[in-house]
């Protein structure tokens, strides 16, 4: 078995998020996802939007700069993740396809065994 991190990316500026009912609906979808794939889930969380992010950047000469905002500014930002266990990439992708991610998608990354 291998572990994979499923990173959920979504467009934060999409009007979808302004409607509270959408947020509640999405929560239910995540609950349903959790029930369906409970056996494979090892963890997961939703993140606050990138407006709440603080970046810490290491510069030349060991200087550390703390700045407001996401580390990389992109249209679609990381909004949450799941940690899963699967036999192979096909199994991981089958689970990834079920992750609710309106106006976005997910990235699947194998985790280095420690």
């Amino acid at each position: 078995m291998s572990e994979y991190l499923i990173l959920i990316y979504q467009d934060e500026s999409d009007p979808f998020w302004r409607d509270e009912a959408n947020g509640e609906g999405l929560m239910k979808e995540h609950m349903a996802f959790g029930e369906k794939h409970g056996a494979a889930l090892r963890g997961g969380n939703a993140l606050h939007p990138t407006a709440s992010a603080t970046s810490v950047r290491h510069g030349i000469g060991g200087k550390v700069a703390v700045t407001d905002g996401a580390f990389v500014e992109t249209k679609e930002a990381l909004g949450g993740y799941y940690l899963i266990e699967a036999a192979n990439l096909d199994e991981a992708l089958a689970i990834a396809k079920d992750v609710p991610a309106p106006n976005g998608g997910v990235e699947v990354r194998p985790i280095m065994p420690t």
Binding site: L89, R109, P110
Partner: peptide, 14 residues
């Protein structure tokens, strides 16, 4: 190797 792309005939659904 790293992402464990399987060596198998995919499931009927896929």
């Amino acid at each position: 190797a790293l992402s464990h792309i399987p060596y198998h005939v995919p499931a009927a659904k896929e």
